[in-house]
């Protein structure tokens, strides 16, 4: 064991422990850590946005590459600040409309190919228990998500109920995986504290 003298590691260790104090209960140490993090993150995102979006757009895209059409995009983006001028705040809706429109168009253009593949992958031969379970699961889950069919109807309701069970099993699997992922995060922190901070090399 050789406790590190690296101030960066000390800072990491103290912040990690400060946040973990919340596991006991809410307390001033946690709140200090929370506020420091919030402040740091705000600054980080400001700097990140400047160096990764604003500067490359102006210096590289427009300045170096001469792609002057980006000027129009920048002007469109700047219109969003009109929301601070009450009488002209309607102008701010245009960049947002543009972005929502782009998002919808993108989804329509690029997702059908992805899910068509998923559909053809579900053309399973009904010759094994596994395939039959997959087939039944897909259809029953689809019925669960029919919103215009009355689930009070015993046939529809029964099929939807089976679909719900499939969904719950899937959620159970997701739960298990997520819990393990969280533990892995904790393990990463514990490893940092034990090996980097306390200097245990095993």
């Amino acid at each position: 064991m050789h406790i590190t003298s690296d101030p960066g590691i000390w800072c990491q260790a103290i912040c990690t422990l400060a946040v973990y104090t919340y596991l006991y209960k809410d307390n001033p140490i946690f709140r200090i850590a929370e506020n420091v993090f919030l402040g740091l993150a705000t600054t980080y995102w400001f700097v990140y946005s400047f160096f990764n979006y604003i500067k490359p757009a102006i210096v590289e895209w427009i300045g170096t590459n001469g792609q002057y059409h980006y000027v129009l995009a920048i002007i469109l983006g700047l219109l969003i600040f009109f929301r601070y001028v009450p009488s002209l705040s309607w102008i701010a809706r245009y960049p947002m409309s543009f972005w929502v429109g782009y998002g919808t168009g993108y989804t329509l253009a690029f997702t059908p190919a992805v899910w068509l593949n998923q559909i053809t992958a579900s053309f399973v031969a009904l010759n094994s228990l596994q395939n039959i379970l997959i087939f039944v699961g897909i259809l029953c889950t689809l019925v669960y998500f029919f919103f215009t069919l009355a689930k009070e109807n015993p046939v529809v309701g029964g099929i939807a109920e089976v679909g719900k069970w499939y969904i719950m099993i899937a959620l159970g699997s997701a739960f298990g995986n997520t819990v393990l992922y969280r533990w892995n995060l904790f393990l990463g922190r514990a490893n940092m504290l034990i090996t980097q901070w306390l200097g245990y090399t095993g």
Binding site: F123, L126, I138, L139, F145, F146, T148
Partner: peptide, 18 residues
């Protein structure tokens, strides 16, 4: 919902064909 009905039918036909 209509699209889902079409998809369900396609999956049934696809599975029977397979």
């Amino acid at each position: 919902d209509w699209l889902k009905i079409v998809l369900a039918l396609i999956i049934v036909v696809g599975a029977v064909l397979a």
